[in-house]
Structures are given as structure tokens and as C-alpha cells.
Nucleic acid binder design. Structure first.
Lengths: 338, 338
DNA sequence: ATGAAAGCGCTAACAC
DNA sequence: GTGTTAGCGCTTTCAT
């Protein structure tokens, strides 16, 4: 069931069918109606492969995330898809489970599919992408940093603002023994958060104890290990941190879970603050105080960056490539125990 | 950079390049090497659209989920993708956010993309799919039930087994006032779980109080509302349920959260059991006792059902289209308070 | 074993 | 405003 079949039945040329289906204005309404009737009647759907072959474009964007099973990402994917649908774009998803090989493969497959752009939401620009000569012709959008390339852009996230608020909040609650569980430090975005923590602590004139900053991996298991480690390291309760800031919410969940294991009450014995504000955060027990980084907004920014690069005819004005963060007060923080 | 360019540089015909790239055995190793060299050197990637156009197949499977932001689904998607990558298939994801219109649109887009099959993981066969005449030529796999169609198949899930265990577990803990928070009852899979609850209760000879079964919607908010409702309905504590079985884990999270709000301790004052065993379940406070339905296994079954329909040449033997469930004991259940 | 050429379904340039 | 037609990049007969 192809365009020729429709043309024959509607007694017009294939060109007219094509024009009708694509909404070219210069078609006689009479003919158009005739064509649409046949199209609907027969249930004709144009073949995307043929379209893509001739146009060179696919109306498809790739989106690469590090771990779809981390609740932070589904929100992004959902928002990205919502906008994509609105703009009649398709999405090709890849969850790389943090495997560079997998990442490379994903890129290759996306190139083969001739995607019109790809959003790389891995929070750390992998070289796999910058090295591939093919990508030089495909619009790419990264988070935090991008290769120095005409077609690539990146979203700038202001981690500092929210983290500054978090530390100020803790300080106002009289906490001075503040720990930080970072993400994997080979990840640029994790490094930025770490830096922001250091900066904010300095601003509040609170000493950073080296043993209080431990490297996590942005997973719940990592969060559990981190607090376990912290607790084991300081047998004397009075020397332990009274608050811990986590590089993401999953880590915070792990920390809270380990606190439960240790018989520590949150926030009475320990205050914890997360980062991301995943939807789940408000449903934790107690509800998690966390730094919000809007996943919806992030997806929107990424999509529009891609769209304006892929389809210059699009009139939507490009929004700022900038994302703010801010603290959301909930119940996992409280006054420092003395 | 197309096949002709490669052919020219390798001084062979385009046919030979095609054969080489596709691993057709009848190519002189000498020529093959020459071709590969050029291919790699220039970084040539065959154009999928052209391939799809001529072959009529796309090596792409669609996967439709109800809500990617429900942590149950990312696990499925990740597993599905893992297998897809292994088999050199691509996936087109759609999260319908339970909107039938959206579902319809998704199907349409997938047809246009000429997917080789689609896994409909919405746990309730929408008519949108059965009505579309086009789908009659595309392999489809559903959960729980499928239209009576040659190309469609479905995965049978044995809800009863796990739920039976759950109720038996509660009974052994002396609970008799057991509530059930169902999913949306227009969803076949939610209805099946509900039925399984009724059956299991009958088997244990425990009376089902009508006011103890409340309809939820498989969200955390729904879980909160459900317990709120239950509590409001029974001002006298002694009349309240001492245990609640939830139709999915998200609901259980909501229930636990509301219990916290109400000052109820779990499991001392209230036992709760979930369903699905999402990864998060073991990280909840307390860790959630729940009925496990393997997301990985589900994805595998779905993929293989599709694969064997789409590519009969594939030799992998089709696994059973059947999925068991079983109870995982954790710490959200305890003896009934008296 | 290799090459020449037809054609997959569609769009766009061009002619009318 | 509509039709004719030449490809888009690839696979696949069919010759050789």
C-alpha cells in the first residue's frame, strides 16, 4: 500500500498525493479532499524510510542517558518525548549503563539511522563522541560541557546556587560537621557539584574535614556504603558528621537507608540533603530536603537546542541554555544535635 | 559518503561492497579486506533508510509503556534494550502516560517507521491497537491478553501464586483485617490482581470486608489517598485494617508515606506488602515485603516473542510465554497488633 | 566470485 | 495547480 496505489485510486498523480499529505498549500481543495478520503479509507501511512532517503532527514532525535533505571532520567525522557511528539519528532533512546563501549555503539547506531541530532544526557562528555568524525555533521547537545565544535552546544547548569542554599540552610541549623558524598569523580558534573560544595563551605566559613568527603557513585548502594564508611571511621558518635549533603537523590536514599540500618533517626540524629529533586523525594520517609534541578526544563532546553540546529526554519526562539538550581525544604533536615 | 564512494575507492562494484558489509560468504577475502579498509578509513556507515526501503524491514522494535516515570518500567526498558542491542535491533520508545490518544498516535508513528514488531507493555490491551488494520501485518506482543489475531501473542503472568503467598504470610502473622489497594480497575492486569486477592483470601478463609478494598491508581499519590481514606473511614483504631496489600510497589510507597503522616509505625502498627519488586523496594524504610514479578524476565519474554515472529530464521528457541510471581520477605510486615 | 542494473516509496525540480 | 520524472542509497536478481 504505497503512494502510487493512492494516486491511482484518487485519480491523481503521486506528486499530488505527496503534496496533499504534506500539506503543501498549492493543492486544489477538491483534489485534496479526494486524496484524503482514499488515504483514510485505505489507512495509508507514508513510508518513513523512503521519506528519509530522499530528504536526508529523519525527524528523529537520539537521546542518550546514563541509566534509565535511575529515576532522574525517566523524567527527562518523558519530557523530551512529550515535546518531541508535539513537534512530530521521534526519539531513539539508549541507556548506556555507564559503559563507554555501549555509548560508542549507541552513537554509531544513531548515525546509521541518520538522526537529526542527539541529546547526550550522560553528564560527562565522553570522548567516544568527539572522536567520531561523522558526528561533526550531526547537532549534538551535552550537559555541562561540549567539544569545541560548530554543531555542538551544551546546557549550563548552575549547581552552585542550590548548593550554596543547602549549606546556608545547614549552617542556620547550627551544623558544622557537614559531610559530602560525591558522585563518581570522573564525571565532570559530579566534580562540579563537589567544587560547589567546597565553595559554599568556604563562604559559610565552615571547615571541610577531608574525612568527611567520600566518593560515591550516584547509586543507592553507593549511598549506603558511604554512610557505612563514615560511621565505621568514627566510632565516637560525637565526632561524626551531623549532616550530609549528597551529590544526587539516589545517594541520599542510600544514606537514609543506611541510617535506618544504624538506628539513626533522620533528622534528629542526622540531617540529609539530596540533589536533583526526583519525584520520589517528597515520598521518602522523611520527605527529602533536596536541591532541585528541573528535569522537565532540562529536557526542554536540550530539545530546543537540537531543534534549532536541525531545523533552522523553526521559528521558536531559542531559550537560554541555562538551568538554575534551588533548595527545596522538606523534613530530612533539622537542628544539629549537640 | 555512500556505497558508491566506497566502491569507487576500493575499485569494486557497489554490489561487492554491499555483500562485504553484510557478511555474505561468497566474497573473495582479498577484496573483502580491501573494502573493509576503505570502509573503516572513511568511516562509512550504511544508510538505514535505504536499507529499510529495499528490505522492507527496519530492525527496529517499538516498545510502548504506560509511564516511564513509574520505576517499574525503566527496568523493563533497560532489559529490552540490552537484548535488542545484542541482536542488533533498535528500539523506539513511547511512554503513553495512560492517554489512549497518545497511544494511538504512538502506534501510527511506529507503523510509519515500519517497525518489525511492538511490545505493548501497558498491562491492558487498548483497542487503539486492535482496530488499526495496519497492525495486522506487524507482530505485536501484549501482557495478559491479546486480540484474537494471528500475529499477536501475549505473556501470561501468574499473579495468583505470589498473592497467595502474600496472604498466607499475613495469615501466619495472625492478620485477619487485611485491606487491598487495587490499581485502576479498568486495567485488566489490575483486575486480575484484585481477583487473585479475593481468591487467596477465600483460600485462607479470611473474610474480605468490602470497605477494606479501595481502588487506587498505581501511583504514590493514589497510595496515600487510599490509606487516608481507610483511616478516615475507621476512626476507631481497633476496627482498622492491620495489614494492606497493594497492587503495585508505587502504591505501597504511598501507603507507607501516609502511614508516616498518620504517625503509624510500619510494621508495628500496620503491615504493608507491595507488588512488582522494583529495585527501590529493598531501599525503602523499612524494606518492603513484596511480590516479585521479574522485569528482566518480562522484557526477555516480550523480546523473544517479537523476534521469533519478525525473524523466523532466528534459531533461538522460543521460551515459555509465562511468568511466575513469588513473595519476597522483607521488613514491612510483622505480627498483627492486637 | 563479481558486476550491471532494476527498483524499493517517496519528494522536488521542472514542465505544462 | 498538476503531472512527469529523476534520483535518494541500498540490496538483489541476473548475467557473466
Amino acid at each position: 500500500l504505497n503512494i502510487r496505489e493512492i494516486a491511482k485510486r484518487a485519480k491523481v498523480s503521486t506528486a499530488t498525493v505527496s503534496r496533499t499529505v504534506n500539506g503543501t498549500p498549492s493543492v486544489d481543495p477538491k483534489l485534496a479532499r479526494r486524496v484524503w478520503k482514499v488515504v483514510n479509507q485505505l489507512g495509508y501511512y507514508p513510508n518513513t524510510h523512503a521519506r528519509g532517503l530522499v530528504s536526508g532527514r529523519s525527524r528523529t532525535f537520539g537521546i542518550i542517558v546514563s541509566e534509565i533505571t535511575n529515576p532522574f532520567f525517566p523524567e527527562i525522557v518523558q519530557s523530551f518525548e512529550n515535546i518531541a511528539v508535539q513537534h512530530n519528532y521521534e526519539i531513539l533512546l539508549t541507556s548506556t549503563i555507564n559503559d563507554p563501549e555501549r555509548m560508542k555503539l549507541a552513537v554509531r547506531r544513531m548515525i546509521e539511522r541518520r538522526v537529526d541530532g542527539v541529546a547526550v544526557m550522560t553528564f560527562g562528555m565522553e570522548e567516544a563522541l568527539t572522536s567520531d568524525p561523522h558526528l561533526r555533521s550531526t547537532p549534538l547537545v551535552f550537559v555541562d560541557q561540549s567539544p569545541d565544535d560548530e554543531r555542538s552546544s551544551h546546557l549550563h547548569i548552575d549547581y552552585l546556587h542550590g548548593i550554596r542554599q543547602a549549606i546556608a540552610h545547614l549552617a542556620s541549623l547550627s551544623h558544622t560537621r557537614i559531610a559530602f558524598v560525591s558522585g563518581p569523580l570522573n564525571l565532570p558534573s559530579a566534580r562540579e557539584r563537589h567544587q560547589a560544595f567546597l565553595t559554599a563551605m568556604r563562604e559559610q566559613a565552615i571547615r571541610v574535614q577531608p574525612e568527611f568527603v567520600v566518593e560515591g557513585d550516584h547509586t543507592m548502594e553507593g549511598g549506603m556504603r558511604a554512610l557505612q564508611h563514615l560511621a565505621a571511621h568514627f566510632p565516637h558518635r560525637v565526632l561524626r558528621p551531623t549532616a550530609v549533603l549528597c551529590s544526587n537523590d539516589m545517594t541520599a536514599i542510600g544514606v537514609m537507608r543506611q541510617a535506618y540500618e544504624l538506628g539513626l533517626n533522620i533528622p534528629r540524629d542526622l540531617s540529609v540533603i539530596g540533589f536533583d529533586d526526583i519525584r520520589l523525594a517528597r515520598f521518602l520517609i522523611p520527605p527529602l530536603t533536596t536541591v532541585q534541578m528541573s528535569q522537565t526544563r532540562l529536557a526542554e532546553l536540550a530539545f530546543h537546542a537540537l531543534l534549532s540546529a536541525a531545523d533552522p526554519s523553526d521559528d521558536t526562539p531559542a531559550p537560554e541554555h541555562r538551568l538554575e538550581t534551588c533548595l527545596i525544604y522538606r523534613r530530612s533536615t533539622g537542628p544539629a544535635p549537640k
